[in-house]
Simulated scan of single mutants.
Amino acid sequence: MEQSSHPIKHKNVSIGKILKRALFIMFGAILVSVALEIFFVPNEIIDGGITGVSIIAAHVSGIPLGVFLFILNLPFLFIGYKQMGKTFALSTLFGVTVMSIGTVLLHSVPRLTDDPFLAAVFGGIILGIGVGIVLRYGGSLDGTEIVAVLLNRKSPFSVGEIVMFINLFILSSAGFVYGWNHAMYSLIAYYIAFKMIDLTIEGFQESKSVWIISEMYKDLGDAIVARLGRGVTYLQGEGGYSGEDKKVIFCIITRLEEAKLKTIVEELDPAAFLAVGNIHDVRGGQFKKKAIH
């Protein structure tokens, strides 16, 4: 393969960006420590992945949770370094270290509630936000995802399916250790944490892609620009059945603008074809949205 005479120059990451990443990863790891030691562990609730295994191991052995969190994640840190690079591995090592130390320091802090349902709900919220922050800034607090990526290459199952299978097995094991009521509370906590991770990563300003097919495309496009302040692009389409030329409106909006856009379409052309999809990342052009960082 012919090599370019102009090699790509990689920009060095500034000290400010490194410190910002480290502070947010530390903050996220501390939140996870709070969720584990103040809500989950005292109420016999576990999380999925290596964290769940660590909670069970600490309960059975009497050894501090932080020890298992650190030791059990070490092999996956090595794998993460090989598969995903030094930055990811160092960020994960930092996050896991902070989380492990945090659980040790918080172990003697009294629980906030004796109600396992409240512990599952609020612990799940706090844990999900913490994990989401760490993931958003390039780290991880659990080796399960790394295992799933490796298994995915040699199996017909997706990464998400593998993670779900592993976590269901771990969460089910809580039934034998703590009883089945606490296993069900653990499932509630896991579901809430899962949703909060998505919300934290994507934010309330999650982007949506919109396609509209209408004879009144110009009126709809003008209304979207005027009332939502969003740019639109007119695409040329052809009906597969009729063979007629059609104009397709394409635009990007935020989650909070979806209801207003549907109202605009309903007012101007109730018969219009409207499709809305989720988008995880938008860059370039004139699209602007608020971001966490």
Rank of each mutant, 00 (worst) to 15 (best):
A193W: 02
I188N: 07
G175E: 03
Y217F: 12
S172E: 02
K247Y: 02
G138R: 07
L256Y: 13
V177A: 08
L150D: 03
Y178V: 04
V248Y: 08
N167I: 04
E258I: 02
I188F: 12
K154G: 06
M164F: 15
I126F: 03
V210N: 06
D198A: 08
G203T: 14
S214Q: 06
E145I: 11
I125H: 00
K195G: 05
W180D: 03
S242Y: 09
N167Y: 10
G243N: 14
S155Y: 01
I201P: 02
D245W: 05
I188L: 15
V225N: 13
E202K: 09
G160F: 12
G160N: 14
G124Y: 02
I253V: 13
I212G: 10
R255I: 04
G175F: 07
Q236G: 08
K246T: 02
K208M: 10
D245I: 04
G221I: 12
W211Q: 14
D142L: 04
S155Q: 02
S172N: 05
G132A: 10
L151F: 14
E215M: 10
S173C: 11
G132S: 08
Q236H: 04
G239H: 05
I249L: 15
F176A: 15
D245A: 11
I201W: 05
V134D: 11
A259M: 09
F250M: 10
G124Q: 01
S158A: 14
F157G: 07
W180L: 15
S186Q: 02
F194V: 00
V232Y: 10
Y234V: 13
L141R: 02
Y178M: 06
E258D: 04
D245H: 07
I224R: 09
R136K: 15
Y178F: 15
I166M: 15
F204W: 11
S158G: 13
G138V: 06
T144K: 12
E161N: 14
